[in-house]
């Protein structure tokens, strides 16, 4: 049953005619270093394939709502950024997308979340299969206490991927722009790497299993500007092959790397006892940063609040 589910998802993800955006994507992501003021021109929604469709998605922990009624579409081969003040539920929301929230026993998801048209929270969906297709990179680099090689090989091994493991590892490390730095010390412990290298190793580990989507929750918040730059460049490369959703507190980063940006804010009830996140505006990044439709968005992106 679960295998079937994965097959079905893969078919959807790879169906021909879905790569309509390839030309545009190359044009947008072609230059590796993007100036802060240089936005990608988000493509017309009509020509895009949807990866996720969130329909009034709400999440609560032990009955206390954390995010309420989020509706948005996330498109293939784009970088979609989630921004907003601390506690507005960005992590909560992104962790819904690969069902990592299932690991929190108190978390409850309501509403609908479609992934390539299939209900991701449907009764027949196995969360383990979901995570094979939708990878995740965390805020704090979390390499396994193993060698660099074993870190990357772990995913392909447990998924029983066929092919030469050395090649798979090299391809993933090259994909994460890490190969040249580590090719001579693949057997050394990953804990001996710098924070930026560790984070790129986590990205390599994630792309080694050939996912469809990569979720990144503040992937650069623990890194210095140079490492951050490398990871941002990497994202521009990766979005040709994968769809990326990123949470970030760094406005410039959202402006530099993303095609589309969602702004979430904390909402309070009348008694100011309960607070939850709600989406304020979701649009092309260029629009959000230059001509937002909601004054709250403008205040936030211009640094007046938050």
């Amino acid at each position: 049953m679960s295998e079937l589910t994965e097959e079905r998802f893969r078919e959807r993800a790879e169906a021909p005619g879905n790569d309509a955006g390839d030309g545009t994507s190359a044009a947008a992501g072609g230059s590796i270093s993007v100036q802060p003021d240089e936005f990608h021109h988000a493509r017309d929604i009509g020509e895009l394939e949807k990866v996720f469709e969130l329909e009034s998605l709400s999440v609560s922990y032990a009955g206390v709502p954390a995010v309420k009624e989020v509706s948005m579409d996330i498109y293939k081969n784009e970088v979609t950024a989630l921004i907003g003040p601390s506690g507005c539920g960005k992590s909560t929301l992104i962790r819904c997308l690969n069902r990592m929230n299932d690991l929190v026993p108190t978390a409850e998801v309501t509403g609908r979340l479609l992934y390539h048209g299939e209900d991701l929270y449907g009764p027949k969906v196995d969360p383990v299969q979901v995570r094979k297709l939708i990878g995740m990179v965390f805020q704090k680099p979390n390499p396994f206490p193993k060698s660099i090689y074993e870190n990357v090989a772990f995913g392909p091994r447990i998924l029983g991927m066929k092919g030469d493991m050395d090649e798979i590892v090299e391809k993933a490390l090259r994909g994460a722009a890490l190969w040249d730095e580590v090719k001579d010390r693949l057997d050394s412990n990953a804990f001996g790497m710098s924070g930026g290298q560790q984070q790129r190793l986590c990205i390599a580990r994630c792309i080694a299993v050939e996912p469809d989507v990569i979720l990144m929750d503040e992937p650069c918040s623990a890194l210095d500007p140079i490492s951050t730059g490398k990871i941002e460049d990497l994202m521009m490369e990766l979005k040709r092959e994968f769809s990326i959703v990123i949470v970030t507190h760094n406005m410039q980063q959202a402006a530099r790397v993303s095609d589309r940006t969602a702004f979430l804010m904390v909402e309070l009830d009348a008694t100011e006892q309960n607070r939850w996140g709600r989406i304020v505006e979701y649009d092309a990044t260029e629009k959000i940063f230059t001509n937002p439709g909601d004054p709250r968005t403008e205040d936030y992106v211009s640094g007046k609040v938050g």
């Binding site: 094979k132 704090k140 396994f144 206490p145």
Partner: peptide, 15 residues
């Protein structure tokens, strides 16, 4: 063993 190791492993599709 920190929870981040569990999460990292589960996020790769490990059971």
């Amino acid at each position: 063993v920190p929870p981040s190791i569990r999460e990292g492993s589960m996020a790769l599709g490990a059971t």
